[in-house]
Amino acid sequence: MRNTRKRGQADHSAPIRGVSAPGVAADNTDGGYNAGIAVFSYIVGGIIVWSLIGWGLDYLWGMRWIVLAGALLGAVGGFYLSHMHGLTSSRKNADELHAPSAPSQDGKDSAK
Rank of each mutant, 00 (worst) to 15 (best):
Met1Glu: 13
Arg2His: 10
Arg2Trp: 11
Asn3Val: 03
Arg5Tyr: 07
Arg5Pro: 12
Lys6Cys: 10
Arg7Ala: 09
Arg7Lys: 07
Gly8Leu: 09
Gly8Glu: 03
Gln9Tyr: 09
Gln9Pro: 08
Gln9Ala: 12
Ala10Ser: 08
Ala10Trp: 10
Asp11Ala: 06
Ser13Asn: 11
Pro15Arg: 07
Pro15Met: 03
Ile16Pro: 13
Ile16Trp: 06
Ile16Gln: 10
Arg17Met: 04
Gly18Tyr: 06
Val19Asn: 13
Val24Met: 15
Ala25Gly: 08
Ala25His: 14
Ala26Thr: 05
Asp27Leu: 06
Asp27Met: 07
Asn28Trp: 08
Asn28Arg: 07
Thr29Arg: 14
Thr29Pro: 05
Asp30Trp: 12
Asp30Lys: 05
Asp30Val: 04
Asp30Asn: 10
Gly31Cys: 04
Gly31Gln: 04
Gly31Lys: 03
Gly32Val: 02
Tyr33His: 04
Asn34Arg: 06
Asn34Pro: 00
Asn34Gly: 02
Ala35Lys: 04
Ala35Val: 02
Gly36Thr: 03
Ile37Ala: 01
Ile37Tyr: 01
Ala38Phe: 03
Val39Ala: 12
Phe40Thr: 04
Ser41Val: 07
Ser41Pro: 01
Tyr42Pro: 02
Val44Trp: 12
Gly45Thr: 05
Gly45Arg: 08
Gly45His: 09
Ile47Met: 13
Ile48Phe: 14
Ile48Leu: 14
Ile48Asp: 01
Val49Ser: 15
Ser51Gln: 07
Ile53Thr: 10
Ile53Gly: 12
Gly54Ala: 05
Gly54Ser: 04
Trp55Met: 13
Trp55Phe: 14
Trp55Cys: 12
Gly56Lys: 05
Gly56Asn: 09
Leu57Val: 09
Asp58Val: 00
Asp58His: 01
Tyr59Lys: 11
Leu60Phe: 14
Trp61Lys: 08
Trp61Met: 12
Trp61Gln: 09
Trp61Pro: 07
Trp61Asn: 11
Gly62Pro: 11
Gly62Lys: 08
Gly62Leu: 06
Met63Ile: 01
Ile66Asn: 10
Val67Tyr: 09
Ala69Val: 14
Ala71Met: 15
Leu72Asp: 10
Leu73Phe: 15
Leu73Pro: 09
Leu73Ala: 15
Gly74Asn: 10
Gly74Ala: 10
Gly74Gln: 09
Val76His: 02
Val76Ala: 13
Val76Asn: 03
Gly77Trp: 00
Gly77Ala: 01
Gly77His: 00
Gly77Gln: 00
Gly78Phe: 01
Gly78Arg: 01
Phe79Lys: 05
Phe79Thr: 08
Phe79Leu: 15
Phe79Arg: 06
Tyr80Glu: 11
Leu81Lys: 03
Ser82Leu: 01
Ser82Lys: 01
Ser82Asp: 03
His83Ala: 02
Met84Leu: 07
Met84Arg: 03
Met84His: 03
His85Ala: 03
His85Thr: 04
His85Glu: 12
Thr88Cys: 12
Ser90Ala: 06
Ser90Thr: 02
Arg91Glu: 00
Ala94Lys: 03
Glu96Val: 04
Glu96Gly: 03
Leu97Ile: 13
His98Trp: 14
His98Cys: 10
Ala99Gly: 14
Ala102Thr: 11
Pro103Asp: 02
Pro103Glu: 01
Pro103Met: 08
Ser104Asp: 14
Gln105Ala: 15
Gln105Lys: 14
Gln105Gly: 11
Asp106His: 11
Gly107Ala: 10
Lys108Thr: 11
Lys108Arg: 15
Ser110His: 15
Ser110Arg: 12
Ala111His: 14
Ala111Cys: 14
Lys112Tyr: 11
